[in-house]
Design a protein around this nucleic acid. Structure first.
Lengths: 275, 275
DNA sequence: CAAATAGTGTCTCTAAGACAATATCAC
DNA sequence: GTGATATTGTCTTAGAGACACTATTTG
């Protein structure tokens, strides 16, 4: 037993080259557009939180919030800390997407990024802070397959527009990987990371379990439906959607009010799946 | 533009503390048991490849193959290199599962592990090398839910038996995380990593796309079915299984032979999903 | 009442499960 | 022929999609 102690005492981790580790968080938001008619439910659009880089490298470019892992914290804690520090947004939960470790992806050196995705809805963003950070903006997301394996990513916020053309290289285990054909305005390989996270959340938003992780505790079934529709870019009939989620949710005694139409009952995630 | 160059020239990555990065690979095998009756198809069992540690720490304990990331290689390349170096097994593909970054998980210091899972079937293992590595052994896997969130992991190879009791702490996005209640014989936190990879492959083996990634190019539908059944620990009727996979596979002109019963047609993965 | 969304009922069609029946090989 | 698996066909049932209909609120 002492031999192991001796070994550890003489072991020097500095003898080996080590990379730096960062997290990058693609935080998507189901954003309500303001509606002209007071009694209509707002239209929703998918937006992504980016920050304008104040420092080199890629000064002035737009990047995903994120930063270096600090000693004593887990990767997940680092991701949550960084997004809150940089944007004042506090996601309910984050989903691991992929690790980006290609050499040359960061001009500063050997830096490996753990990419996470998150989705928050307008219902809870007001409670946790919104556009407080000076250079953090929500960009409207458009990500479409132009033709076989060729995708176009467009992020817009007012006059600012970021574009990228990407090729889908591999799809393994539900997550596609991309390579940039051309891009403008993105820092590092963040166009690739954004495309990958979009692919990941789209392939997983079919599963209700995943959707709940991004919603506040109580929600209307219509809100839940909008989240899925906005992410997947599809439309489903409310009657069928309700039937499908019925086993995953539980009624609460609360209702919405003052919406100019029939109030909606609030639901919460069912604790145990009834078998 | 020169300002960025200047910045990079003065930037020293050594100013920040960095972790060491490793990969650990849980390589599962659909192993054919030898069958008494020559014309019966072999029974299959799920086994996991472990190596006995020759060095400190955890000398003599059983560990997942894996090792340190080297400069210039991606995490995936590192995982593939390590498993081949240590066990002479060459998986067709590997699936990222999770990153383990809890402090104290490795007594040598700040070491973060990227866990990967792979599945290979006996049909192609003979072609790529088997039990060549001296201390690499295939352990029969038993992983069962004893009661609510309490799991028991048992790995056996002949007289050797490794056990662990684990609690399921969180399930986010289809992958459960576990904490060890008690364990014996495992190096590091590898009992946790093994439980997590098992949970991940089980939740994903429902999707045929994922299964193909682990099979040789040509396979019988029965072999494909056995893979799913062995991983998921279920049984399905051949007739129904065939109908379900029909859209995912293409016939080839090859057949099995010499099996003591009707030959089976070989299939390959369909290149494009027909819509 | 009108406009809007919330929520229910029911019809159809497709996919999944159960099971019977046929095909083909090695001995 | 016998014993084994491969492969196909069909009946039944559960679930997804379409759509009509009722309920409830605010102005």
């Amino acid at each position: 037993m002492n031999k192991e102690k001796d070994f550890l005492a003489s072991y020097s981790i500095e003898d080996y080259e080590r990379p730096s580790l960062t997290t990058d968080i693609a935080c998507f938001r189901i954003q309500n557009s303001s509606e002209e008619n007071y009694r209509k439910n707002p239209k929703t659009k998918l937006t992504l939180l980016l920050i304008k880089r104040k420092e080199h490298p890629f000064q002035g470019c737009w990047a995903l919030p994120g930063g270096f892992l600090q000693p004593g914290e887990t990767i997940e804690a680092c991701a949550l800390r960084e997004i809150e520090e940089e944007t004042a947004v506090k996601p309910v939960s984050i989903m691991p997407v992929a690790v980006f470790s290609e050499t040359g992806r960061d001009p500063r050196g050997w830096i490996i990024s753990n990419a996470y995705a998150s989705i928050i809805s307008d219902e809870n963003i007001s409670a946790v802070g919104g556009d407080d950070a000076a250079d953090a903006k929500w960009f409207e997301v458009s990500f479409t397959e132009e033709n076989e394996h060729a995708f176009h990513l467009k992020l817009t916020h007012g006059d600012i527009s970021l574009c990228a053309t990407l090729n889908e290289t591999t799809t393994s285990f539900g997550v596609s990987r991309f390579e940039v054909v051309e891009s403008s305005g993105f820092a590092f390989d963040h166009a690739t990371i954004i495309a990958t996270t979009l692919s990941a959340i789209r392939s997983r938003a079919k599963d209700f379990e995943y959707l709940f992780d991004f919603l506040p505790e109580k929600f209307t079934l219509t809100a839940l439906q909008k989240v899925q529709e906005t992410i997947m870019n599809i439309e489903v009939l409310p009657a069928n959607f309700r039937r499908k989620v019925a086993d995953y949710v539980e009624q609460t005694n609360d209702y919405t009010a003052g919406s100019g139409h029939r109030p909606a009952q609030l639901y919460c995630k069912r604790k145990k799946t009834n078998s």
